[in-house]
Computed example of a mutant assay.
Amino acid sequence: MATEKTSEELLRGQAEIWQHMFSFANSMALKCAVELRIADIIHSHGGTPITLSQIASCIDNSPSPDIPYLARIMRLLVRKNIFTVHHSLSDGSGSESTLYGLTHVSRWLLHGSDLSLAPMIVMENHPWTVAPWHCFSTCVKEGGTSAFEKAHGRDVWDFASQNPEFNNMFNDGMACTARIITRAIMTGYRDEFGCIGSLVDVGGGTGTMIAEIVKSHPHIKATNFDLPHVIATAPLIDGVCHVGGDMFKEIPRADAVFMKVTSCLLIINL
Rank of each mutant, 00 (worst) to 15 (best):
P132E: 07
L30P: 12
W108H: 14
M74I: 02
E35G: 12
E142M: 00
G94L: 09
T51W: 00
N269L: 05
V202K: 09
T223N: 00
L115V: 14
T84C: 02
A131S: 10
I267C: 04
A184I: 11
I38P: 01
A211L: 04
K80A: 07
W157D: 12
A160L: 12
Q19R: 14
S57H: 10
M209W: 09
P235D: 00
T6D: 13
A232G: 02
H152A: 03
T187D: 01
D91P: 06
D201M: 10
F193A: 10
D191G: 06
A2P: 03
R12V: 10
R75T: 13
I50L: 01
F166S: 00
D238A: 08
S27L: 14
G144Q: 08
S53F: 05
R72E: 13
T223P: 01
G188D: 09
Q14W: 12
A118F: 04
F225I: 01
L109V: 11
G204E: 03
D226C: 05
A160M: 09
I180M: 06
A25N: 11
S97W: 14
Q19T: 10
D66N: 15
R179V: 01
N81L: 04
D201V: 06
P252H: 13
I59G: 12
I180C: 02
V243S: 01
S137E: 14
K249W: 10
N125I: 11
M209D: 10
G239K: 06
F159Y: 15
F166Q: 00
F22H: 13
F22G: 08
L117F: 01
G205Q: 00
P63K: 11
H104W: 12
C32R: 15
V214E: 03
I121L: 06
S90L: 13
A147Y: 08
V230W: 11
E124N: 08
P119H: 04
H43K: 15
A184E: 08
D155L: 00
D66S: 13
P68R: 05
G173A: 08
T187E: 03
C241A: 11
Q14I: 11
T48R: 07
L109Y: 14
R79F: 11
I121R: 06
Q14V: 09
L110M: 10
I185G: 00
A118N: 08
F170I: 05
I210Q: 02
F159C: 07
L265W: 04
E4D: 13
L115D: 12
R179Y: 00
C241W: 03
E9I: 13
T48A: 06
W128D: 15
G239I: 05
E142Q: 06
G244I: 04
D60R: 15
L99G: 05
G204K: 03
M74R: 02
K5H: 06
G205F: 02
C264P: 01
I181K: 01
F83T: 01
V240D: 02
R190Y: 15
